[in-house]
Simulated scan of single mutants.
Amino acid sequence: MNENVIENVIEISEEKIKKLMPEYSKKKLAKAYEILKMISENPNISIDELRIALDVTDRTIARYISELKDKGVIERKGPDNGGKWKIR
């Protein structure tokens, strides 16, 4: 595991997400946490892969990604196809 991935994993906690997303229900916090966990384990993961892994609709995953970006939790480096996710 490279250093960057370890750093990302340490940064993620359900408490941190709860503070950033106080309006989220427990269920939504759990999904957001799962998304961040998957991104930390594979920064190259596609939105489609996230959607399939979480068994949610395109619209649902797009909403989570959008909200996480808006809160400054994640950002996309590079193009949608071939870029990487970065947890901030």
Rank of each mutant, 00 (worst) to 15 (best):
W85V: 09
E75P: 00
K27G: 05
K71Y: 05
K18H: 08
E23K: 15
K19F: 10
K71V: 03
I61L: 04
P79F: 02
R63T: 13
K84E: 12
E41P: 00
L68Y: 06
S46P: 02
S25C: 07
N44E: 13
L36E: 00
N4R: 10
A30L: 15
Y24K: 07
I45H: 02
M1L: 12
E67F: 04
E75N: 12
K71R: 14
L54H: 01
N8R: 03
I39L: 04
R63L: 12
I47G: 08
E7C: 02
R76G: 04
K19Q: 10
L68K: 03
M1I: 11
A53N: 14
D70S: 13
E67G: 00
S46K: 05
L68P: 01
E23G: 11
L36R: 04
K31N: 11
R59H: 11
K28H: 09
S13M: 09
W85Y: 07
K31M: 14
M1R: 04
L20P: 02
E67H: 07
R76D: 02
I12H: 01
I65Q: 06
I6L: 07
K26D: 13
R63P: 02
A62S: 10
S13E: 12
R63V: 11
I65W: 00
N2Q: 07
E34I: 00
I12K: 01
R88F: 07
K37A: 07
I87R: 00
I45T: 03
I39D: 00
N4E: 15
N8K: 01
K31I: 15
N2M: 05
D70G: 08
E14G: 06
S66Q: 12
D55N: 11
G82C: 08
Y24E: 11
L36M: 11
R59I: 14
M38W: 06
V56D: 04
S13K: 09
E34L: 14
G72V: 08
V73P: 06
I17A: 14
S13Y: 00
K28W: 06
R51A: 12
R63W: 13
E49I: 07
E3D: 08
N42D: 15
A30T: 12
N8C: 09
N81Y: 14
E7G: 01
D58Q: 06
I74H: 01
L50C: 05
Y64V: 05
P43T: 00
I6W: 01
G83S: 08
D55R: 07
P43H: 00
V5Q: 11
L29Y: 02
R88I: 08
I39F: 04
D48L: 09
K31L: 15
D48P: 00
S13T: 15
D48R: 11
A32H: 08
I39C: 02
E75T: 14
V73C: 07
L54M: 11
K26N: 11
E7S: 12
I35S: 06
I87A: 03
D48V: 13
E15S: 14
R76F: 03
M38V: 00
D55C: 05
K77G: 02
Y33H: 11
D80L: 13
K16I: 14
I87C: 05
K16A: 14
T60I: 08
N4K: 12
I52C: 01
L50P: 03
Y33E: 14
K37L: 15
D48I: 13
P22N: 07
D70H: 08
L54I: 10
I52L: 13
I65C: 05
L36T: 01
E3T: 13
I65E: 06
D70V: 09
G83N: 03
D55S: 11
T57D: 08
K18C: 14
E41F: 06
